[in-house]
Every structure is written in structure tokens, then in C-alpha cells.
């Protein structure tokens, strides 16, 4: 005998929809609430002295992060974009491509602190760069490399095949086609992906913990690639977990500045990307 459902399927559905909506709200709302709380607290703690005065001044840390991010991009972007070009334009299915993809996935999955260990062993110790901007940026570059590759590859794949075909049919070589047709068309997409990846570098701490960051510098602004640096996330970490004497407002304000910086980059890139998708030229 077929027995009826204990609860009518439609009621089950209504119930589950409510549960699912609540769960989705739980994912988004508390974090938004916490960030909002941080914003309010941080905004209240902001003042010019915070940036310039005292041992916890934010400006040197921001400059350090800026240097780090720029140098990381300078190292990782050429390699990452070239690798993406290889995967999207040259590579065919085969063992090599599968290995490269596996390597990218693993590179993306390596814990950031392990990247830090690697940077310590290779750049700081073996290559004798010491604990410095260059070591930190090289370590960080390895961390963001897989992100840049995937973002760039996606941007390259968005370029329609017929543009390539059109160029090739005119007698252009493969490289000419890439340089004159594919890359220019993919460039905005690659740039937004690059910004998103690089914002990761602005917020990461673990990789520079033993490779670049140092708190009490005689000269807070690095003058060469081989100087130690301050960095915003590192400073926030040290301040909140090892300096109970620093007033809470200063900590909130530091977190605020970091969040605004990183999320600002992200929001900018996402808006730009949305704009690009809407204004698809092909």
C-alpha cells in the first residue's frame, strides 16, 4: 500500500525554504554586522596622529604594504600572465598540461605559512637576501601566482575564437595574433583579475612573518630591496595579539584602514569587471 506523506510535500517545501533563507542570512549578515561594527569603531578611532606619530604609526606600515604589493605584482604578473597565455593559447590536452594544472591547484592550496617557510629557506637563507622586502615579495608572488594564472586564463578564454581565426586567416602568426588581438582584448579582464589577486597580498601576513616584516625599524621607510619593512596586516597582528597596552581604538582603527584598503581594491575590481561584462564589445 502506498501511504501518504506524513507532511504534505508543499508544506515541507515551504518549511525548507524558510530554513534555507535563514541559513543564507546567517552566512552573510553576521559578518556584515561585524564588519560594520569594526567600521564604526575604527572610524571613531581615526585621527591624523594615528598615521604619523608614535611607534604604531600607520603610514610607514601602509608604505611598506604598498611597496610589497607593487613588487609582488611586478614579479608575479609577468610569470602569471605568460603561464595563462601558454595554457589558453598554446597548450593542448596532454600530460604536461594536466601536470601544470595540478601544480597550480596545489600552489593555490599550499598554506600561506608554508609559503613563508619556503621563502625563509630559499630567499632568506639560501640566496642570502636576508629578511627583506625582496624576500617577502618573492614569497608573496608565489602565493598569488595561481590566482593570477586562473584569472588571466579566464580573461583570455573570454576572447572569442573568431577574433583569433580572423587574425590567423590574414596570415598573422600565432604570437602576432596573441600580441595584437588576444592580449589587447583580454587586457581589462586580466587587469581586474590582477587587482583581485594582488589585494590578497595586501592582506596576507603569514608569508612575510619570517621573510620581510619587522616591527621596530630604525628607518621606517625602506630604501632598498634589501631593507626590512613594516606591513599593515603584520602591524595589526602584533598590535592585537601582543600589545595589550595599545588602546583598543588604535587597534580598531588599524583594522579599519586595512579592511578599507583591501576591500576597496576588491570592490573596485568587481565593479570594473561588472562594467566590462555589461559593455561586452563582441
Amino acid at each position: 500500500m502506498t501511504r501518504p506523506h506524513l507532511v504534505h510535500p508543499r508544506h515541507v517545501q515551504n518549511m525548507m525554504y524558510i530554513v534555507l533563507s535563514l541559513m543564507a542570512a546567517v552566512v552573510v549578515l553576521p559578518v556584515l554586522g561585524l564588519l560594520a561594527y569594526m567600521m564604526i569603531k575604527g572610524l571613531a578611532g581615526l585621527n591624523p596622529d594615528l598615521f604619523l606619530k608614535g611607534s604604531q604609526a600607520l603610514l610607514p606600515a601602509m608604505v611598506g604594504t604598498l611597496y610589497l604589493v607593487l613588487l609582488t605584482a611586478a614579479i608575479a604578473a609577468p610569470i602569471g600572465i605568460a603561464a595563462a597565455v601558454y595554457l589558453s593559447e598554446y597548450a593542448h590536452r596532454g600530460i604536461l598540461v594536466r601536470l601544470i594544472r595540478l601544480a597550480i591547484i596545489n600552489l593555490a592550496g599550499v598554506p600561506s605559512v608554508v609559503h613563508g617557510l619556503f621563502g625563509l629557506a630559499l630567499f632568506v637563507m639560501m640566496l642570502k637576501f636576508g629578511r627583506c622586502l625582496l624576500s617577502g615579495a618573492a614569497t608573496m608572488a608565489l602565493l598569488v601566482l595561481p590566482l593570477i594564472i586562473s584569472a588571466s586564463e579566464e580573461a583570455l578564454r573570454q576572447v572569442p575564437q573568431r577574433l583569433r581565426d580572423g587574425s590567423l586567416a590574414l596570415g598573422a602568426t600565432r604570437w602576432q595574433t596573441i600580441r595584437r588581438v588576444v592580449l589587447p582584448n583580454a587586457l581589462p579582464g586580466i587587469m581586474t583579475g590582477l587587482i583581485l589577486s594582488i589585494s590578497r597580498a595586501a592582506g596576507e601576513t603569514a608569508p612575510i612573518l619570517f621573510t620581510a616584516a619587522f616591527l621596530s625599524l630604525t628607518n621606517p621607510y625602506p630604501e632598498s630591496l634589501f631593507d626590512e619593512i613594516l606591513a599593515l596586516p603584520y602591524q595589526l597582528f602584533v598590535m592585537t595579539s601582543e600589545m595589550p597596552s595599545v588602546p583598543a581604538e588604535t587597534k580598531w582603527a588599524t583594522a579599519f584602514v586595512l579592511v578599507v584598503l583591501v576591500l576597496g581594491l576588491n570592490i573596485g575590481a568587481i565593479l570594473w569587471r561588472t562594467h566590462l561584462r555589461r559593455a561586452k564589445r563582441w
Binding site: M1, T2, R3, P4, H5, P9
Partner: peptide
């Protein structure tokens, strides 16, 4: 979907 039929049915 429409009920809880037993195995033999």
C-alpha cells in the same frame, strides 16, 4: 514523490 509506497508495490 507522491507517497510512501512499500517495497512490493
Amino acid at each position: 514523490l507522491h507517497g510512501r509506497p512499500d517495497r512490493s508495490e
